[in-house]
């Protein structure tokens, strides 16, 4: 049994490494091969041939393509993602500075979507074909269909501009900016750590709208999946047996159903989390949220491919590692995948 798990684990790690390699290859093609004139993008159209050639050599573009890829690969593995044109800093530093904002937003969104989506999906399954089920279906259909950046704009118009219930774009009001020394980089936690409640509540008022908007699309997915997992379980003998014994609905859910769908849910949540990191890109643009998404889109606008490629790589890696971890969770949590062998 143990042995099987280790072999399986090794296989999964091998798959992850292969995927990462292909991701590096794809980003290499995007950053170095596809752009028609990467040298011209840096030196400008009016540069004399000598400058052009010098830059070409500095970028290593005179080398054969496989050597270029090797250099790219080794520098990426060493964490050297190049220099950003816009800020002049190493891209790694920029990303490190921007990442906590994205992490904070996506994490809050995944928590919100889980807390609402899982009970919603379970209730819909319990009362299948009832008005509540229809309601949940419509909610989740709209969530699948709504353009998140547009929803963000509508949210800002209603809750910020008209009702003034929430803070506007950005992470915090300007006059409070920089008051709290970043420790974790997560503003909500940092402000609590030093006990600055004014900053904390201000940050809450700024994050709540983008987090809810982002959570909605993830919630649609989580609700739908939870509903179908629950329906699958409700037809199983053990639920009927529990019913026959006179267990209450609550007892059936907490004691029997939840443990049985937990593993599948973990996978869904991991996928939803990855999707949120992606959705954060457009949401950040709407809310001027200083995260990786905004950094990437700013870089897109000025054609800074180093920064674009690095941001793609980072989000891609997180995405893949999340997938990998959810696979792993399946292996560890689901007794069935363990017992098959030996």
């Amino acid at each position: 049994m143990k042995e099987f798990t280790f072999i399986e684990l090794g296989r999964r790690i091998g798959q992850l490494l292969l995927s990462l390699f292909v991701l590096l290859l794809v980003t290499f093609v995007i950053g170095r091969v596809l752009p028609t004139d990467p040298v011209g993008a840096i030196v400008g159209e009016l540069a004399d041939p000598a400058t052009y050639e010098a830059m070409r050599q500095r970028l290593g573009l005179d080398l054969p393509i496989y050597q270029q890829f090797w250099i790219y690969l080794t520098s990426m593995v060493q964490g050297d993602l190049g220099t950003a044109i816009l800020t002049g800093n190493p891209v790694v530093n920029d990303l490190r500075a921007a990442f906590p904002a994205t992490l904070e937003l996506a994490t809050l969104a995944v928590v919100l979507s889980t807390v609402i989506g899982v009970p919603l999906g379970m209730t819909a399954a319990f009362f299948r074909d009832s008005w509540f089920d229809q309601f949940a279906r419509v909610i989740s259909l709209v969530g699948h269909s709504i353009p998140v950046f547009w929803f963000g704009i509508v949210g800002l118009v209603i809750f910020y501009a008209t009702l003034n219930w929430v803070g506007g774009p950005g992470r915090i009001d300007i006059y409070l900016e920089g008051l709290v020394e970043p420790q974790t980089g997560l503003l909500l936690i940092d402000s609590l750590l030093v006990g600055d409640y004014e900053v904390f509540w201000n940050a809450v008022s700024h994050i709540i709208l983008p987090a809810c908007i982002l959570a909605y699309s993830a919630m649609a997915y989580i609700t739908r999946m939870t509903r179908s997992f629950t329906l699958e379980q409700l037809n199983q003998d053990y639920v009927i047996a529990a019913r026959a014994k006179g267990a209450s609905n609550w007892r059936i859910v907490s004691g029997h159903l939840l443990p049985n769908i937990a593993v599948q849910l973990v996978t869904v949540l991991a996928i939803a989390y990855g999707g949120l990191l992606e959705g954060a890109v457009v949401t950040e643009v709407v809310f001027s949220w200083p995260g990786i998404g905004q950094y990437m889109t700013n870089a897109l606008m000025i054609g800074d491919m180093n920064a674009v490629v690095a941001a793609t790589l980072i989000i891609g890696i997180i995405f893949m590692v999340l997938n990998f971890l959810s696979d792993l969770a399946y292996l560890v949590l689901d007794p069935r995948t363990r017992e098959v062998t030996t």
Binding site: L23, V26, G274, L277, V308, G316
Partner: peptide
């Protein structure tokens, strides 16, 4: 397993 929107962004940026 790739994040499709991000990859589409990067492709569009390159092309």
């Amino acid at each position: 397993s790739f994040p499709s929107l991000i990859l589409a962004l990067a492709f569009a940026a390159a092309l």
